[in-house]
Measured scan of single mutants.
Amino acid sequence: SDIKVHVGDITVELHNVSEEFARLVEEALRLGLNEEQAKEWAHKALH
């Protein structure tokens, strides 16, 4: 599904992702990663 993740003043739109993936992206953003890094990190975490 499509999910918007908000962290501080950052909003990341995720398309066709699981809630778990979105949660991992949100966690990575909170750790200070940028959007691209957060998506990559979440992807690796799920595989």
Rank of each mutant, 00 (worst) to 15 (best):
K44R: 12
A28D: 00
K44I: 05
L14M: 08
L24V: 02
V17P: 05
L29P: 00
K4H: 12
T11G: 05
E20N: 09
A45T: 14
A38H: 00
L24I: 04
L29S: 02
V12N: 04
I3T: 05
E40N: 10
L46A: 10
W41P: 00
V25K: 01
G8A: 06
E36R: 12
E35W: 08
E36I: 13
V12I: 14
E19K: 12
E35F: 11
V25I: 10
V5H: 04
E13M: 10
H15W: 08
K39M: 13
L24R: 08
A45F: 14
D2A: 10
W41Q: 07
K44L: 10
D9N: 14
R23S: 11
A28T: 00
G8L: 06
N34W: 02
E35R: 07
A28V: 01
D2P: 14
A22H: 04
V17A: 10
N34I: 04
G32K: 02
W41T: 05
H6G: 08
V25T: 03
A42C: 01
I10H: 08
L46E: 10
E35C: 04
E19N: 11
I3N: 08
Q37H: 09
N34T: 12
W41L: 08
R30G: 10
N34Y: 05
A28P: 00
A38N: 00
A45E: 14
A38C: 00
G32P: 00
E13T: 14
N16C: 05
H47N: 13
E26W: 07
H6K: 03
K4E: 09
S18M: 06
H15V: 12
D9E: 12
A45G: 10
E27D: 11
N16Y: 07
E27T: 14
F21E: 04
V12F: 04
S18E: 06
V17N: 05
E20Y: 11
K44Q: 15
E13A: 08
R23I: 11
L46F: 11
E36D: 15
E27S: 11
V12G: 04
I10N: 06
K4Q: 11
V12E: 05
K44V: 13
V25A: 01
A38K: 00
D2R: 00
K39H: 03
E19H: 13
K39F: 11
R30M: 13
K44F: 09
S1L: 12
V5E: 07
K4C: 07
T11E: 11
A28H: 02
S1R: 04
V5C: 02
H47P: 10
E40T: 08
E36V: 13
N16G: 14
H43G: 10
L29N: 02
A28L: 03
G32R: 01
A22P: 01
K39V: 15
V7K: 03
G8K: 02
L29D: 00
I3M: 07
D9P: 08
L31V: 09
V12D: 04
E40Q: 10
D9V: 09
A22R: 06
L46T: 10
N34S: 12
I3F: 14
I3L: 08
V5G: 04
N16A: 08
A45I: 13
L24K: 10
S18H: 06
T11K: 07
S18G: 07
E40Y: 09
H43Q: 13
A38Y: 00
E13S: 12
L14K: 03
R30Q: 12
H15P: 07
G8S: 06
E26D: 04
S1Y: 07
D9F: 09
E19A: 12
T11A: 07
Q37G: 06
K4S: 15
E27R: 09
E19V: 15
H6F: 04
S1P: 06
L14P: 03
E20G: 09
L24Y: 13
N34M: 08
G8C: 05
V17D: 04
T11C: 05
L31I: 09
H43W: 13
W41D: 02
E19T: 11
L24W: 08
E36T: 12
A45V: 14
H15T: 10
A22K: 06
G8R: 00
E20I: 10
S1V: 11
A42R: 00
G8F: 04
L33P: 00
R23V: 09
A28Q: 03
D2H: 11
V12C: 06
L24G: 02
Q37V: 06
V5F: 03
E35M: 10
D2S: 14
W41E: 07
N34C: 01
S1G: 13
F21I: 04
S18F: 04
E35A: 15
I3W: 11
I10G: 03
Q37T: 07
E35Q: 09
F21Y: 15
R23H: 12
A22F: 05
A42V: 03
E27V: 14
E27N: 03
L46R: 00
A22Q: 06
A42S: 02
S1H: 13
E13Y: 04
E20V: 12
L14F: 05
H43L: 10
A38P: 00
S18A: 04
H47R: 04
K39D: 01
E26S: 09
A42T: 01
